[in-house]
Design a protein around this nucleic acid. Structure first.
Lengths: 213, 213
DNA sequence: TTACATACATACGGGATGTATGTAACTTGT
DNA sequence: ACAAGTTACATACATCCCGTATGTATGTAA
């Protein structure tokens, strides 16, 4: 032993420890203060290192945010996938996946990072390259429901975006609601109703006149 | 005349000119470079004034962004409202409003500011206080469709968020599509299908088994 | 153990924000 | 029309943060 005593760590252990500390600190600070208001000094101070260590492992603030975001997005898609798999019927699996997405979005690290900060911090294209994780999950869910015959064949891309957007926007409502559980159930009820429109052909429209808004 | 000659302007004219120049410069720069990458120096340089003028009329960068955003949001809601009013049937009016929202979102100043930058720059609550403009428009559209009997009575809030989120997320897809017009029509087709689910009661679900994803 | 690579700390320059202070333009009362 | 006061703007500065460049310690391999 060359140094004091038990401080002998391999290089890999050192990097893993500091990167984990930096990623953890960044995750919490981004979730509470947002991307712009979180300084690298704050991240490093919380992680117990200096900015030298940071710039050795990461290229800049956007890079570490991208990594944090990717992890969060992966956790989210994992939850959706598992909920979907627990049902043999793709239709109920799809609904379960939607519920899982809403429930997971209650965590601040999820909704704040993926729904609020990511679009501006990463830009549309970079965000999509990672978001593909979770949105793909919804797309394959829809595809399997179509393939199984629950839904007549529909173009997947627009449908996926409509569904995903409906869920993410509603998730922010659920998060900020007083009674989140009740709001979540109500949202899922209405969503089921909308999705029901996919299965059958109904001629919409009515001839009533109306007062001006 | 006391000074040179034609340079005599009233105070109100002066403030209107500079604030308009600053708001216009900020609008364009925010739309092209985003909120974070747009410096006050750049805004002032483009407006032809110094930062002293800026801080005389605005408190900070977030404040001027909020004003720019409010104007854009108002333009958007105005377009939706007019499209809605051009139809006597609330149902077709609602569809027309959705189409107007998608079409207006093609302008970079609309989608970049309201859909990408605003959430992070303003935060959820501040954004909602202004966004109320456009989202309320959708809500009243739904409310009138219900009142007219086109749709059975449904809880408005969750439904509004689902519809609004579906539209905004899809708008970003439409913007980045190669053939925006075709994508827009396809999106509206699928949306009509989803909305059709509101009018009738269909029992969804199917008993098919499926392969794991 | 010596030579090298990796992990981290410190120091510095550039740029951006916000404030404080100074100056010019306009307005108002007499 | 002129003085006093208010508004509109410019300049200077203090501070913070990012990113780089350089230095130092620790681990690794011959």
């Amino acid at each position: 032993m060359s140094t004091t005593s038990a401080s002998r760590r391999t290089q890999r252990e050192r990097t893993e420890a500091t990167t984990a500390a930096l990623l953890g600190a960044a995750r919490e600070l981004f979730a509470t203060d947002g991307f712009a208001l979180t300084s690298l000094n704050a991240i490093c101070e919380r992680a117990g290192v200096t900015r030298g260590a940071f710039y050795h492992h990461f290229s800049n603030k956007e890079q570490i945010f991208r990594e944090v975001y990717a992890v969060e997005q992966h956790r989210l898609s994992q939850a959706v996938r598992e909920s979907f798999r627990q049902h043999s019927d793709p239709w109920t699996g799809l609904i379960a996946g939607c519920r899982a997405l809403l429930e997971k979005s209650l965590e601040p690290t999820v909704w704040r990072l993926t729904l609020v900060e990511a679009p501006a911090a990463l830009g549309w294209t970079a965000m999509r390259d990672i978001q593909t994780d979770c949105k793909n999950q919804m797309r394959t869910g829809l595809a399997m429901a179509i393939e199984a015959g629950c839904i007549p064949s529909r173009p997947l891309e627009p449908l996926t975006s409509l569904l995903y957007g409906a869920l993410t926007e509603s998730a922010l409502d659920v998060v900020h609601a007083e009674d989140t559980a009740a709001w979540l159930e109500q949202t899922l009820s209405e969503l089921r109703l909308l999705l029901a429109g996919l299965v059958g052909r109904i001629e919409p429209g009515c001839a009533h006149t109306r007062t001006q808004p």
